[in-house]
Design a protein around this nucleic acid. Structure first.
Lengths: 151, 151
DNA sequence: AGTGAAAGCCACACATT
DNA sequence: AATGTGTGGCTTTCACT
């Protein structure tokens, strides 16, 4: 499916503040409130919009250590097995199977180094994991939004 | 700062659906609507909540190719320079400076391989970039939410 | 943190182009 | 097919307890 200009502007307005009123957005894009709502409903029904969420600053709640773990798995490990295992970690923010040497890349958010290390060790201890390689995030430069499969 | 149990439950409710009414959330956590709003306002003021956004399924709008680009920069390149350069790319979802060999890791979302390649070439052509190394995402396994600096 | 009132917003039906 | 108008009902917001 394809978004037209109006849909894009509505999504953009919601991306900046998902709690803005439809009337408010309508005033910006030149539509009435019901018209905006209808388009949002359609975008949700079509799967273009997957939901509305709050964005939390991890640092503000004491989660100050971020890192990425590359996972090297046993051959013939199913992506679904990896997903199920990682879904149990609240510290895992995102995970994807990738091309290249590693099988998957996992983004982890932890309170501190000690916490990060614990998560790393637990992930490294998963039965299908052969070895891991991890890097720490020094400073997050940009962070935008897009959602694939529900977490 | 630290969230107490009530705040956590409110944030959790908003994380699932940021457009839920305060009355609805209040019924779930055992608070009146104004009480919920007051807590949310305080969390925003404290910086724990950075905003409310819509989550978009890139695949549904025709962006089907995702990848990560490791950037190797010239020495003494400031993180802020990297941030400013990358902020101009709508295809850049997130970017961080990291420990290890690479200086920064950039997550990119593109329509297709051709588009991804164009972005890669443009990023590789930035004056402070010496070389890049990229991996493609095969399948996104998990995607949760947290926001650091505004994009 | 709760209550009550006023303002504003949402969601639906129906009419319009 | 998509948008605008109008109305009832709910939500938000504010002052006060």
């Amino acid at each position: 499916m394809r978004l037209n200009g109006l849909d894009e502007r509505i999504v953009h307005a919601l991306a900046e503040d998902a709690r803005r009123s439809y009337a408010d957005i309508g005033a910006e894009v030149g539509l009435s409130a019901p018209a905006v709502k209808r388009r949002v409903d359609r975008l949700r029904a079509d799967g273009a919009i997957t939901g509305f969420t709050v964005t939390v600053d991890p640092a503000a709640i004491g989660w100050r250590t971020e890192g990425m773990i590359e996972m090297f798995c046993r051959s013939r490990t199913a992506p679904e097995d990896i997903r199920q295992a990682l879904a149990r970690y609240p510290e895992v923010v995102s995970a994807s199977t990738v091309t290249g040497e590693a099988d998957a890349v996992v983004q982890v958010l932890a309170a501190d180094m000690r916490h990060f290390e614990q998560v790393l060790e637990r992930i490294a201890g998963e039965p299908f994991v052969e070895r891991t390689k991890s890097v720490l995030v020094l400073s997050p430069l940009l962070r935008r939004h897009a959602a694939g499969p529900p977490g």
